[in-house]
Amino acid sequence: MTKKNRFNSSERCKMDFFIQLLINGISIGFLYGLSAMGFVMIFKSSSVLNFAHGEVLAFGAFLFLALVTSAQLPVWLGFLVTLAGTFVLGFVIERIFLRPLIGEPLIQVIMLTVGLAAMFKGGMLLVWGGNLYTYPDFLPEGLGISWGIVQVPPVYVAAVIIGSLFLLMFGLFFKFSSQGIYMRSVADNQTAALSLGVHVRRVFALSWAIAALVAGISGIVLGIINGINVHELSSIGLKVFPVVILGGLDSIGGAIIGGLIIGLLETFTGGYLSPSLRDVVPYIALVFILLVKPYGLFGLVEIERV
């Protein structure tokens, strides 16, 4: 009898562990998807692989931190100012650094974003150092879900709510607003869009600005969950790669699904195999995806002719 009970409880414990991992994985994966979304947006409109994405993300998190703690702004105002700040940052990056490189070979563009990443990272480390910061507690207590054995901390709920909200907004933006339609047209066929009078350069600038804004949001949410640290946050920018490759480099929906898969893969590896393998398993998956299905689940297969 006692033996059976113990068995039951350990079985139950395993189940709890599994569900907790599942929830963690989904929330983390959702955030990866959100971070990857901005990345995909840039790639889709201008075919630039942005290695500085993680740094922009970290910049958003730190800007919010500075506004909320040093400048003592209320949280909602700080959030709005951060959004505006990252939007402007994305715009400025495109204007100063990427615009002169339109039509240059691939390696120049990639290396420019790598250089930008090093610059931003170094700059942020100079200002904030490598310390771990946390935001003041501003999430309402009632946000957490306690549903039987399932415990969802309030930050995850907030992450999913904010994420879904912005996903919906961007969906509507791309579907109905004229700028969104321009952006889709440029992504579809740049030359055709140009000949039909779409202001392609403005579309590039706008997509960088929006991508930076999305990165800023995901930076803030990741900062709420894991704390704010330059190294941690900028490494998210590299973890975006497995996500977007799995989802397809030019598919926004794919980014979310890829994010969920990679997030689950990561948490389950960390939970069941070994915590140290956790950080490298997305990249192992990445190599296999590239070998088997290079254009991802939802990516467009490039056809090339000489």
Partner: peptide, 18 residues
């Protein structure tokens, strides 16, 4: 030291490419 190095590296790459 390390961040400054990283910053100057990045700057050098960017300036040369531009």
């Amino acid at each position: 030291m390390a961040p400054l190095r990283e910053f100057v590296f990045g700057l050098a790459i960017v300036l040369f490419i531009l």
